[in-house]
């Protein structure tokens, strides 16, 4: 099977700034792929390289096996949901959605029928006559989605599409997007800086840092076995152990990560610390221990005794859960 999108050592340099630097990437057809990273890490530039708004300064980009490095955006069978939605303010919702068909020369009746079909798909039937300014943020987002899908793209790009929505709406849209992707069987490429969003939605994800991919894999890979300290830090919630601490705990002198779920409190152990914070989560209590300057979080399941703040405690863990990382 050919990959939907393929990057072969792709670079995009702006003068001395290496926005994207030697990225290799394969996105399988029909998958939900997330690009995760802090702002300025190159994830959005990668998306723009796929859509054609940026040209690579090095390397090759293939979409379904075809080299598109010199293909302008309007000739790529790829559509984008923009971060600010970029709906045309002078057109009503129906004409916004039908825009892609209009520029292809489809007749008015046919394209309006197709637009209504798309609006129904995103549950906005009956909104065709409104102007974008009359819609809420969530509704605009759906219009942008319908507009991008009307051309039946083979790859749909989403640039932080949920960033402007409030938490509740964002969670609802996450589920809907995922369901839509499954139903249509399309390849979705999703850019986000929200690790929870990426982990919960993506089949595979790439973590970007300074123009390069720090790690690429399934959400489980990334969460359980972060390849570098950066990934562990950015994806969060894992304990990051400096080399000395790893050694004190019986491992090699190397950075390591340890999930809080795999960490238990113990009466004795090689490393002791002071309890600095307690957070009750319902299913358990998250206990933060200061072990010589490094904060270690442990999850105490409900029903087990929880130490008081300021108490001294040691901790234990399943040695298999200690994950060693590259780099210093």
């Amino acid at each position: 099977m050919t990959a939907a999108v393929e990057f072969l050592t792709v670079s995009r340099h702006f003068g001395t700034v290496k926005a994207v630097d030697g990225v290799d990437l394969t996105i399988a057809e029909g998958s939900f792929f997330a690009m995760l990273g802090p702002s300025g890490s190159g994830k959005t530039t990668c998306l723009r390289l796929i859509s054609g708004f940026e040209k690579p300064t090095g390397g090759t980009i293939r979409i379904f096996g075809e080299d598109v490095s010199n293909t302008p955006p309007h000739l790529r069978n790829v559509n984008t949901v923009f971060q600010d939605y970029a709906l045309f303010p002078h057109l009503n919702v129906r004409d916004n959605v039908a825009y892609g068909l209009m520029v292809k020369g489809m007749g008015r009746t046919a394209r309006h029928a197709k637009a209504e079909e798309m609006l129904a798909l995103v549950k906005l039937d009956g909104y065709g006559d409104r102007k974008p300014a009359q819609l809420s943020g969530g509704q605009r987002q759906r219009v942008a989605l319908a507009r991008a899908l009307v051309n039946e793209p083979r790859v749909l790009l989403l640039d932080e599409p949920l960033g402007a929505l409030d938490l509740k709406l964002r969670e609802a849209m996450q589920d809907e997007l995922k369901a839509l992707q499954k139903r249509l069987g399309l390849t979705f490429v999703f850019v986000t800086h929200d690790q929870h969003e990426a982990l919960s939605m993506a089949d595979r994800l790439a973590v970007f840092n300074e123009g390069r991919i720090a790690q690429i894999g399934t959400p489980q890979d990334i969460y359980d076995r972060p390849a570098t300290r950066f990934v562990a830090d950015f994806v969060g919630s894992s304990n990051v152990l400096p080399p000395e601490l790893t050694r004190a705990l019986g491992g090699p002198t190397q950075w390591a990560s340890l999930r809080p779920e795999a960490t238990q409190l113990a009466a004795t152990g090689p490393v002791q610390g002071t309890v600095t914070a307690l957070r009750y989560l319902g299913s358990g209590t998250r206990v933060v221990i200061d072990a010589g300057g490094t904060e270690i979080a442990a999850l105490v399941p409900a029903g087990q005794p929880v130490p008081a703040e300021g108490a001294t405690t040691a901790f234990a863990f399943d040695p298999a859960a200690l994950h060693l990382m590259e780099g210093s």
Partner: peptide
């Protein structure tokens, strides 16, 4: 982004200008 959206949806430069 509005001009990019137009190109993204398949409009040529001339079409983007007019529409």
């Amino acid at each position: 982004s509005m001009l990019e959206a137009s190109a993204d949806l398949g409009a040529t430069r001339g079409q983007t200008f007019r529409t």
